[in-house]
Design a protein around this nucleic acid. Structure first.
Length: 283
DNA sequence: GCTTGCGCCTGAATGC
DNA sequence: TGCATTCAGGCGCAAG
């Protein structure tokens, strides 16, 4: 489940191996991943042939490959997306969806089992494509403004975890890092945003940044020269999760069994001792 | 304008 | 064994 650290690892891999390359041919093997390109898969392929990739940027969980004509390829990995750089003779992946053949003989492959992700074209890729202008900066971005974030957060009438998952407020956080960040900050997910104190807000940002930074550190070392991969395989998921997916296991801080609650048609994991439920919470 | 909930997808895991 | 159901969850969009 790619969240910010995994997407950043992919961005770095693409920056190393795809920038400067020209796209020779594009093959769309399944229409769904290019569904946001309204003129259709054939037009998508035609539009990209002959274009050179000049840069790879990221905003939240979105990537974009800036092209030499001012347009850009927007990429979202969704739940299960991967961008792989492979030699053309490598076996097709089971869920291979789109192939971009490059002028150095390698292929950039978009693989996505569940197809929540996809590729599209923005005609304005020079700075921030307008299609993703609503996505906020992430908490590790040097230009992320803690004070403005705090003000916007406290104006919300919702629970803290819902707010963390809202990409227009702060980007890059999904269910896993929300739970882990809240655990680090010792805050319950249902805590109403408008009641957060200044110290709690600082703890929250510290917690979220800490969890993403360590994931980035581990994920950033796990790809080799040719294989740009993301599939929740940073190693972080196996070794370092305090509460996410740990129902019944002891909290690493106090030993209390981790609890799971239904939340927004999914799950939230907390330590009931470290993160007591507020009396009047907002889910 | 803001908040909430649905539907999109596949395959592994679980239930009967 | 085999079929049906549940669960995972980011995002856009519609509804409240």
């Amino acid at each position: 489940m790619p969240e910010l650290p995994e997407v950043e690892v992919v961005r770095r891999g693409l920056a190393d191996h795809v920038v400067g390359r020209t796209i020779s041919t594009v093959r769309v093997l399944h229409p769904r991943p290019v569904r946001r390109h309204l003129p259709g898969p054939d037009d998508f392929a035609d539009r990209l042939a002959g274009r050179r990739v000049d840069a790879v940027s990221r905003r939240g969980k979105y990537l974009w490959l800036a092209l030499d004509d001012g347009a850009a390829i927007l990429v979202h990995l969704g739940m299960s997306g991967q961008m792989l750089v492979q030699p053309p003779h490598a076996d097709a992946e089971r869920h291979l969806r789109v192939v971009l053949e490059l002028d150095d003989g390698l292929e950039l492959r978009f693989v996505d089992q569940r197809m929540f992700g996809g590729l599209s074209i923005s005609e304005d890729g020079a700075t921030l494509p307008p299609e993703i202008a609503h996505i906020a900066r992430d908490a590790l971005d040097p230009r992320f403004d803690d004070v403005v974030f705090g003000e916007r957060l406290r104006r919300r009438k919702t629970g803290i975890k819902r707010a963390l998952l809202d990409q227009t407020l702060v980007s890059g956080i999904g269910n896993i890092y929300a739970d882990e960040g809240l655990w680090r900050a010792r805050l319950h997910f249902a805590r109403p945003t408008e009641t957060l104190t200044r110290p709690e807000l600082a703890r929250l940002l510290d917690g979220v940044r800490g969890v993403m930074a360590s994931a980035l550190e581990q994920g950033g070392t796990s790809f080799d020269a040719l294989y740009v991969n993301v599939n929740g395989q940073s190693g972080y998921f196996d070794r370092s999760l305090a509460v996410y997916g740990q129902e019944g296991r002891p909290c690493p801080r106090c030993g209390t069994p981790v609890r799971r609650d239904a939340f927004m048609n999914r799950s939230s994991f907390t330590c009931p001792q470290c993160q007591p439920r507020p009396r009047r919470g907002r889910w």
